[in-house]
Every structure is written in structure tokens, then in C-alpha cells.
Design a protein around this nucleic acid. Structure first.
Lengths: 157, 157
DNA sequence: CAAGATAGATACAACTCATAACGATTACGC
DNA sequence: GCGTAATCGTTATGAGTTGTATCTATCTTG
């Protein structure tokens, strides 16, 4: 074990020892993205989970809350507050399905579709700004690499 | 606005609408890494924050809690419980500094250094397994791209 | 028809992370 | 020097996220 000199207050303390870990770099990048994304959505009254929910509902009109939960990779109870909030704000409708009276069919309202369009544009602008240093090829490569990690990890668990 | 057919229960509901967003892919990858990393550290009685703290303390012996907080990018109050836990488990020592009696000098104990060595090896094994699909060049590229995002974001805020 | 599975909801707990404020101590401007 | 401001560690507190267990209503299946 190498002996290290004490770092007095003048010395700068860094996270250099953690940088070799790829996971650490990914976490830091995610922190940055998350903060910027939250700031982007906040003026629209949305959080990440509500924006994601609107997006998936818009892409899959009529789906149930359980299907939404599965698509968003969260547990069912965590969606109750989300759909309740979106319903109260008249951004989505929750209609009982005659063929299965346990489930609700979720759909965007006109206002919901309008807000989603706005939010999507805002998020796209956020991504353009945040990934300005990356070429299109870079972004494609990043997407590929992240996908590989995700699939390796989900196989492992 | 394109009209979409209702997705009945037979249709599979996916997150396809969110995949174009790079941030979404990054979050999913982070989720996978985080779960695997937590499972790796759990048998050693460590969490991500305690592992990170031990690593930074090992790399910067004698540093203060405020310096540690800065390196870990968390607020000072959040470290109190961490240093308390590590001290109680005799993994670090907290010595008063004569020149500044407000601060503590944090150092690994022998047991702390031993556990950190074990944990570091476990985390390296976790990374080797999780990033098995990536070549060394891939990993280097990923690190570079993540670094660009991180620096763009921190400039922006 | 009875037994089990599923949808949504409720209650609850754990964890993470931030802010505000306080006593003790140190640094700094005048 | 001396008083004001800043810093360190700490406590209290709150917001936000996510999971598990459990309940009722409803549907499915043997």
C-alpha cells in the first residue's frame, strides 16, 4: 500500500480516484442532464415522470396504468399520484373500459397534447444545447454503447 | 397531429417514444449500473456514497469533511451520517486539527484501507462484467463523450 | 361456481438530496 | 486589535423518488 502525504487545506481535493470507474462518470453526466432537464420542464409544470408519462400515453393512446408502469419501468403504486395529477390538470382522460371494468384507458386530452408538444420541443432544445459538443456520429455511438450496457445489465440480473 | 389507433391490451406498450431522447437512454443505463453496483457493494456493508467516500479519503488523507463533500458533489450535511457511520465501524479516523479546531482530518484506518481494497476489487470486477460488450476503445470513447456532456452542462448552469 | 390472478389504490418505509439555522472557531477589513 | 463576516460540523426538516405489503373490485380459469 503506497504511503500518501497528507493533503493540507491548500491542496485541492479531487474526485480523481473515482474517475477511472466508468460508472462514476456516467453518474456525474446523468446528474448534469437531470438538473438541466428538470429546469427545462419546471416552467411547464412538469417533472421527468410526468413528461415521460405524457409521452408514452401520446404514443400509446388507450393504454392502462399497468401498461404505462411497465413501459416506464416503475411500480404500479408510483403511477397513481402521477395519473391523478395529470387527470386533475385535464391533461389526460381516464375512461373506464367496458370490456374490463378494472382498468382505465389513458388518453391525452387536447390540452395534454398541446402541452406535450410544447414540452417535447423544450426537451429537444435542451438536448441540442447540452449535447452541442457531440457530433451526430458521437450521439449515435453513445446511444449504441449505452444500449449495450443496458442489455448486458438486464441479462445479468 | 397524427391520429393514432388505440392500443388494445393485446398490443405491446413500449418506451419507443422516449428512446430518441439521449437523456432517457442514459438514465436507463444508469439504472442498470446502479442496481448492479449496489448489489456488488452490499455484501461488504457499503453503499455507493460510503464507497465513494472511502475512495476519496484514501486518495486524499487528512482532508476535511467540507473538502470531501465538495469532491463528492454533495452538500455538507449529507456527509455527517456517512462519516459517523464510517467512524463507528472503525474504517476512518476523525482527528482534530490543531491549526484549525473547527475541522476534522479524515484518514483511513488499517481496517478501512483493507475494506477499500476489497471493495475496489469488487467494483472493478463489476465493471468488467457489465462492460464486457465494450472494447477498451469503446470505454475510452464513452468516457470522453460523458465528460463532454458533463462539462457542457456545468458551464450552462 | 370456486380459486387464483390482475387492476388500481392505500399505507408505509427506505433512501437520496437539499435548505435553513445554530454554536464554535477562524479570517479579514478598518 | 476588534468587530464583522465567513467557514466547519451539526441538527432539524422537507421534498422527491422508489419499493413492498395489502386491500377491494373485477376478471379468468379449471
Amino acid at each position: 500500500m503506497a504511503v500518501r502525504e497528507d493533503t493540507d487545506t491548500a491542496n485541492t481535493v479531487t474526485d480523481a480516484a473515482l474517475r477511472p470507474f466508468l460508472g462514476f462518470n456516467l453518474r456525474r453526466a446523468w446528474n448534469v442532464i437531470h438538473a438541466d432537464l428538470a429546469a427545462t420542464l419546471e416552467p411547464l409544470g412538469l417533472r421527468m415522470i410526468t413528461f415521460s408519462a405524457l409521452t408514452v400515453i401520446g404514443d400509446n393512446p388507450g393504454l392502462s396504468q399497468a401498461q404505462l408502469a411497465s413501459a416506464l419501468a416503475v411500480e404500479r403504486p408510483n403511477l397513481v399520484a402521477v395519473t391523478e395529477e395529470l387527470t386533475k390538470r385535464d391533461l389526460i382522460s381516464r375512461d373506464r373500459v367496458p370490456s374490463d371494468r378494472r382498468t382505465y384507458a389513458l388518453r391525452l386530452t387536447t390540452a395534454g397534447a398541446r402541452l406535450l408538444a410544447q414540452a417535447t420541443e423544450a426537451v429537444q432544445a435542451h438536448e441540442r444545447a447540452l449535447y452541442a459538443g457531440l457530433s451526430d456520429a458521437d450521439k449515435a455511438r453513445l446511444r449504441t454503447l449505452l444500449g449495450k450496457i443496458e442489455s448486458t445489465g438486464t441479462e445479468r440480473s
